[in-house]
Design a protein around this nucleic acid. Sequence first.
DNA 1: AGATAATGCATACGTCCCGTATGTCAACGA
DNA 2: TCGTTGACATACGGGACGTATGCATTATCT
Lengths: 196, 196
Amino acid sequence: MRKPRQEMIAETRGKLIAAGRRAFGTIGYAEASMDDFTGEAGLTRGALYHHFGDKRGLLQAVIMEIDAEMTERLNEVSAAAPTRWQGFVDECSAYIEMALEPEIQRIMFRDGPAVLGDISQWQNTPGCIAALSRSLDRLKADGEIIDIDTETAARLINGASSHMALWIANAENPEAVSKRAVAGFKAMLGSLRRQQ
Amino acid sequence: MRKPRQEMIAETRGKLIAAGRRAFGTIGYAEASMDDFTGEAGLTRGALYHHFGDKRGLLQAVIMEIDAEMTERLNEVSAAAPTRWQGFVDECSAYIEMALEPEIQRIMFRDGPAVLGDISQWQNTPGCIAALSRSLDRLKADGEIIDIDTETAARLINGASSHMALWIANAENPEAVSKRAVAGFKAMLGSLRRQQ
DNA sequence: AGATAATGCATACGTCCCGTATGTCAACGA
DNA sequence: TCGTTGACATACGGGACGTATGCATTATCT
């Protein structure tokens, strides 16, 4: 064995986070038995308590991991767009689409807030809201959008899009509802743009 | 005793709903022990299981009661306003304010969706969204707002306002955040209005 | 009206799951 | 090499939920 200590520890942490993430994202936080998913990872609850304190601690770690991934994806989307405004719209669309993914929906928008409280307060601001905020800041500097508090706008968009996603995901006819939701959402975004 | 059966049964149901509502609204759904709050109501879990099937069934009943109250309050607010537009804005403000109440926030916006899934699908549409929808329909008929799908708009507003409320409620400085939130929210509402 | 069925609700029991306290073994420092 | 630290497992106790069962009162039937 070459790199013994730190590597093994990181591997254990990683296994626990991965196992918890899978369980929380599928059957949900409340239904996920710690004995079960730690066992599937070849470990026991002892390891979990050692590394994360308790079940909520693991959920928090899972959420931070997912939040980082979402932030990364949002940055890529906005960077790939030809204009800043287009990048912003794409970013918002991507946000809705991500909220449609069962794992993200369940962990980030349902169980997370229910167990840990308001997402916004976990860190000094979660990455995915900060990403929206930055995009808005740039647009504002460019004079492309109306004079509005960007963090507030980012949170409005965050709230609106996550609800749109929930609506779509639980609808009997997701296709049709998605059309309505995205159209309405884009209309709302358009209203942010300075009438030129 | 004059009215024995039905009345006693309704009383029992009412006691259970009231006790559950108090427990869920304060310590939260997960932390509320059925033995505890049924005991406080002078009953046992037996009564709860008989009337509501399980803990989730009681939560659903509690939510329906609160939803009905919220709908009633929203209708009163919009009816009291001098103009329809003003009534709509008032209604939205009232919605945010209600979302700031700890009981509503906890049960309707946190535990409810987490335990029962998307609120929107519980009934054919919850009353408080339907109320917003109706107001928007009237405004649209009056030509006061832009051409937008009213249910979508109602849900956008619902999502945005509940997130605003969460943000405010969990902020270090609720007063200051409230100012920013309400200002941004009204800007969003204003953008719905037809530029005349 | 008396017997029987049904219902509202309580009690008893088993099970699962979480948190803590304790134990053990490997790795690191001296 | 030996003591110590830390990573992780095991053992234990408590609490909460769901179900099965029991009882008493009310409704129903003849």
